[in-house]
């Protein structure tokens, strides 16, 4: 093992490279939506969950109630509990290093789930670089956002919607039946729009419940 690979697991490098432009776009979008620069930086530092950070940014910018923003982030990040359950059923770490769960993301979860179950120091070598790059990219985007022309910042504002679409397509591609959850979530949001900021939360919950109500054909086909 070389000196570099003793510090960084090679699997961390493509994850970090992928995070950098997304984090930069997040910092830039936040400033273009007129939030203070510290807001996206603190979100990246303490929350470290891409899709939910973009959602929080969008909801803050559109004036949604504070409770709606918080609950929406929790709902979007519910899947992390599932990933954490799956991951920690494989590994057998002592209790203190289990705090590394805070650096479990969709990508590090997938990378760490391939091959034999990692020891905690192996996971640490894989997880610290993507986290550092995510925070650094956000700082860079937020700081540069203050000096970039408004024209460019306006253009980047659209990138949030694009990211929502790309994340949705990726989700549906992994699990095609979730398209019903997305459609039901969208429809429920429109139908409950007279309720203001709460319509988003209702859309999420109703969309997920519709998905649950649709029979799972694969499971029923099992003997």
């Amino acid at each position: 093992m070389s000196r570099v690979t003793r510090i960084v697991d090679p699997r961390a490098v493509p994850i970090a490279l992928g995070y950098l432009p997304v984090a930069f776009a997040f910092g830039l979008a936040a400033v273009s939506l007129h939030t203070p620069a510290w807001f996206p930086i603190l979100l990246s530092f303490f929350v470290y969950a891409g899709a939910s950070q973009f959602a929080a940014l969008h909801l803050v910018a559109t004036g949604s109630p504070t409770l709606t923003v918080i609950l929406a982030v929790w709902l979007i990040n519910l899947r992390m509990a599932l990933e954490s359950v799956s991951f920690f059923r494989r590994v057998h770490w002592p209790r203190p290093p289990r705090a590394l769960a805070l650096w479990l993301t969709d990508e590090t979860f997938v990378a760490a789930s391939l091959g034999p179950a990692p020891e905690h120091w192996e996971f640490l070598r894989m997880a610290w670089l993507p986290y550092a790059v995510w925070v650094a990219g956000t700082v860079l985007g937020a700081l540069l956002g203050a000096i970039l022309p408004n024209l460019l910042k306006d253009a980047f504002g659209i990138s949030i919607d694009a990211l929502f679409i790309t994340l949705l397509v990726s989700t549906v591609r992994d699990n095609p039946r979730t398209v019903w959850a997305a459609l039901a979530g969208g429809a429920a949001t429109v139908l409950t729009s007279p309720l203001g900021g709460w319509s988003l939360l209702l859309g999420m919950v109703l969309g997920a419940l519709v998905h649950l109500a649709i029979p799972d054909a694969r499971r029923e086909a099992q003997p």
Binding site: A55, F164, T171, A181
Partner: peptide, 18 residues
């Protein structure tokens, strides 16, 4: 199954709103 569907439902709702 419910947890799997939440991200898609959330993204559908967010897109409709935004």
């Amino acid at each position: 199954r419910l947890l799997q569907a939440v991200p898609a439902a959330a993204l559908g709702a967010l897109l409709t709103q935004s």
